[in-house]
Amino acid sequence: MGITVSMTVNGQAVTAELDPRTLLVQFLREYRQLTGTHVGCDTGQCGACTVHLDGRAVKACNILAVQAQGAQILTIEGVAANSELHPMQAAFRDHHGLQCGFCTPGMVMNALELVRKHPDPSEETIRAGLDGNLCRCTGYHNIVKAVQAGAAAMKR
C-alpha cells in the first residue's frame, strides 16, 4: 500500500508515493539521491543520519518518511550556500574536525542546533551536546574545537 508523502527538502517541494515502512533516511538517499545523510547504526545511537526537521535535529533513520508529512527538511547538502562552506563546515575543515567523513554530516547538523541553543558554548556544553553522535576517528578533540570556532564564526 503506497502513501503519498509531501515535504520540503532543502527548500524544494517534493512528493512521492511510498511504502509506509520507508524511513526518512531511505527516502532522502534513495528517492532524492541525497547521499550525504549516512546510516551508521540500526538502533538510533550513531547520529550519522542527523537532519533538521522543522528546524530540529533528528535522526532520519529513526523516523518514518510518512511522519515527516508536510515538514521542512534540511540535509547536509542544503547547508552550504552555493559553493561557499557554511561557517560551521569551514570550522570543521580549519580545525581538522573530520577524518573519514562518515559521521561528519550528522555532526555538522547536530552542531548547528547546538550553537543555535548555545551561541557561546563551553567545551563541556559542546561535549554534552554531541551526545547523539558517534565518531570513531577523531577522538572528538578537534570536533569540539571546530564547534567552538564555528560558533564564534556564526556570531560574526
Binding site: 540500526d42 538502533t43 529513526n62 523516523i63 518514518l64 511522519q67
Partner: peptide, 27 residues
C-alpha cells in the same frame, strides 16, 4: 500507537515488533 517512535522504530527495524498497523498520533 506511534508517538515519537524513538523506541518503537528501532524495534520495528530489528523486527522485534511487527504490528499490523501503526496509528500515528503526530497530527
Amino acid at each position: 500507537a506511534l508517538s515519537g517512535g524513538q523506541s518503537l522504530i528501532p524495534a520495528l527495524k530489528l523486527r522485534l515488533a511487527a504490528p499490523a498497523a501503526l496509528v500515528d498520533l503526530g497530527a
